[in-house]
Design a protein around this nucleic acid. Structure first.
Lengths: 202, 202
DNA sequence: CCTACCGATCGGTAGG
DNA sequence: CCTACCGATCGGTAGG
């Protein structure tokens, strides 16, 4: 006997939709595709959902909410900028690698949201980037970080960690936490082995 | 009188297509969309091209070729791993920021290629990543770089720099070369101001 | 959850 | 580059 996780038909539908949207893109995924994968007729989907876009909306806004929750929690915990940046990167990586299909749909397919959802979504994303940027700014002012371009660096950091759902596999033996730690380390300390050399040489 | 760059109708078509594919996605861009933007009828497009996918193929493979040319040139120039990585990142950034629409289509829409093009494309991409990885490996062996996970780090680096077409604007006063230099610096040296502190404190 | 169906739109062709 | 058109497929509804 297995310990079965109860999953409603609607949840199953949304999970399958996320997987298909990720694989083929939202626009190229037909409701008939989705229905086939669930073993039902296309028309039957509409007893669970109102429209195709409703699924996309749920995926995008649910993940946005989770990411905000993670970031706000990190910020409210306080601490140094480096500590906060590290924790924020870790929280972000754990959330998106924990839901790789939904994360990639969130990252790549949001533009298929109709108005006003698309605009709302972009506002949220900008606000998220701003909160991240404030941590960076704080670290630059405190001298913890170098004087980099705040905006460009935030986008670069987020872009770097947003690639994790592409290659992360739960079965790989490496955990989301370990991935987060590795990336944080590289991004904060860089690739260069110079520091060690300097210490050794002196 | 302007110094006009002669541009054929076909080139105009491909440029406009790249812009639309970038903005709406390949699948969500109709040939009627494209025709409207060119001021002609949809059927007239087919006197210049064979199919919608042909345009996508041209965009994807042309950019891949350019990126390979850039990377191969860097590698054949030799030099230390750090020098090579820096030059490779710079070449990559300059190529993709120089063709932002095509670059984003290349990065995001390649999955709409039919077989065998899609498989060929993915093979090329993997080969490109491998060449990048070899530079990294060389630097780790020589002690120039820290002992990071080669595969993950390459994907992270590429993902970081591949975000440049999203925000880079030619009119911003900052050049592609400067962007490349900034990103290379952050990725190689990290955000941390530690090194300076160590030097100052000793 | 199904059968039956609809109007709209798709990529593309024929023939000029 | 246009008019006229085609078969296929789309998201979705009515009614059970």
């Amino acid at each position: 006997m297995f310990t079965e996780v109860k999953i409603s038909r609607k949840e199953e539908l949304e999970l399958k939709a996320a997987a298909l949207f990720r694989e083929k893109g939202y626009a190229a995924t037909s409701m008939r595709d989705l229905a086939n994968h669930l073993g039902i007729e296309a028309a039957s989907l509409y007893s669970h959902i109102k429209s195709k876009e409703e699924i996309l909306q749920k995926i995008c806004f649910r993940l946005a909410e989770e990411l905000f929750k993670g970031l706000d929690s990190v910020v409210s915990n306080g601490g140094g900028a480096r500590e906060q940046l590290s924790a924020a990167l870790q929280a972000h990586v754990e959330i998106i690698t924990g839901n790789p299909d939904q994360a990639l749909v969130f990252l790549q397919e949001y533009r298929h949201l109709s108005e006003p959802f698309r605009t709302d979504f972009l506002k949220m994303r900008k606000e998220y980037e701003r909160k991240f940027m404030l941590i960076l700014r704080q670290g630059i002012r405190s001298g913890e970080f170098r004087k980099v371009d705040e905006k460009i660096t935030v986008l670069t950091l987020l872009s770097a960690i947003n690639s994790t759902p592409v290659w992360f596999r739960k079965e790989s033996g490496i955990s989301a936490r370990e991935v987060a730690a590795m990336l944080t380390d590289v991004l904060i300390h860089g690739l260069s082995a110079d520091k060690t050399e300097i210490i050794v040489n002196k």
